[in-house]
Design a protein around this nucleic acid. Structure first.
Lengths: 236, 236
DNA sequence: GAGTGGTCTAGACCACCTG
DNA sequence: AGGTGGTCTAGACCACTCG
């Protein structure tokens, strides 16, 4: 933190995070910040420019620097939010039915994503859920994660029914990156029955790999989505 | 284009795109650019800063400003790269067939995305292309953009066959954000014929809205993808 | 009209890279 | 050692917003 503008940037960021300036508030004007920090306006402007890049503020000519809602990065299509969070923010009744509680099993062969040696050896924890909107099944989700250092994962229930919340709270695992792979496929008999549609009807198949802050521990999901009633949109 | 730094930015961008400075080349130093354009270094630096944001160059202290392969931010699944750029980076033979050259027409009713009044009034420029990999048609792309202040768009050919490059170079339009909407649908007769598959086969339908740096000018695309041979993956 | 951010000038010193 | 980009100063004028 040797430079002046970094110091100013850090100060302002701290204050925003601490709530000194809330969403929609104006930061002090550039000339006022200039006085407060005892530097020139260029230096202040550089600090503010960084905060714009980081998504803390936006600037409006003639008005000022406005604190904005800190929005989560969208990591690929689904972002890091879970299903419940996503759909419930749209005021729809969502529910999840656990078809297969977490169990230790083998990795399916062939698996839809290449696994490294350590993941392969560790074996697999598997669970399967149906996601419903307004009591209508819309998504069939199979999740796989390597069975490494996740004590009692299969015996304790998920926190708030959320996989990612459980991983975060119980095991300090945070999602860092997502890869995905999309295709349209005809429904097989099992999927057709569970999603209550005709066999052969088009389904959206999404393979997901969620990288975490722990090496050799990624979460894999395959989603089969009936998109006739609800399409899969952006999450911002 | 009133400002000096925009002028410098535009000049340099044109030269990079024209190949005057190729990938890996160094731009003239800031002090040299200062002399060349007859402005102060701050102005030059602001222009270069913009080019960094747009992904044309990166800067290295003690070295210079280095032209980089143009890779845009990943914005949602498809990123802002065009089709050619995406697939060709994987060493496959890709080609595009223009089915409908850009023409002025009306917006389809109903349109897949809500349009604002100005867009609605402006009318629509429409084009339709088939994307092929290894001479096999895999994607049917319909593109719509409001007919506002895009002189000679329909009469001039696309630069390198790329829509986004044309918008950037000829009209200084840059993509800022993308929204998308995904679903799986059965192929209709037209799509089935053009993609050489059976009618009713599952296709991935992607609606895209590309926001630009100009208000009331967004680019809309609908993509129909045959994912049996090639799935739609992440672009990083 | 007063205050805001946007642009621009003309300098200066420093940290970093390369020959 | 000489050139590069990184940081910073001390001014100036303009375009925009709002009361």
């Amino acid at each position: 933190m040797g430079t002046l503008y970094r110091k100013v940037q850090h100060d302002l960021k701290s204050q925003i995070i601490a709530g000194v300036y809330g969403e929609g508030d104006l930061l002090p004007s550039e000339s006022e910040l200039q006085r407060l920090h005892g530097v020139t306006r260029s230096t202040i402007r550089q600090a503010l420019e960084e905060l714009v890049k980081e998504g803390y503020i936006r600037k409006k000519q003639g008005k000022g620097s406005i604190v904005i809602r800190r929005q989560r990065r969208t990591l690929g299509m689904l972002s890091v939010k879970g299903f419940s969070e996503v759909v419930s923010s749209r005021r729809m009744a969502v529910s999840t039915v656990m078809i297969q509680k977490p169990v230790i099993s083998r990795w399916e062969e062939p698996f839809f994503y290449p696994l490294d040696d350590l993941e392969q050896k560790a074996g697999c924890i598997f669970l399967k859920r149906i996601r419903c909107v307004e009591d209508e099944p819309v998504m069939l989700e199979s999740t796989y994660l390597p069975n490494t250092n996740l004590p009692r994962f299969c015996t304790r229930p998920l926190i708030h029914g959320s996989l990612f919340e459980t991983l975060s709270v119980n095991y300090s695992l945070e999602i860092t990156r997502v890869e995905q792979d999309l295709r349209a496929v005809p429904a097989d008999d099992d999927a057709a029955a569970r999603l209550r549609i005709g066999p052969g009807k088009p389904l959206l198949l999404i393979y997901l790999k969620f990288y975490t802050n722990r090496e050799h521990l990624s979460v894999y999901s395959s989603l089969l989505c009936n998109t006739t009633g609800y399409s899969i949109g952006n999450i911002l």
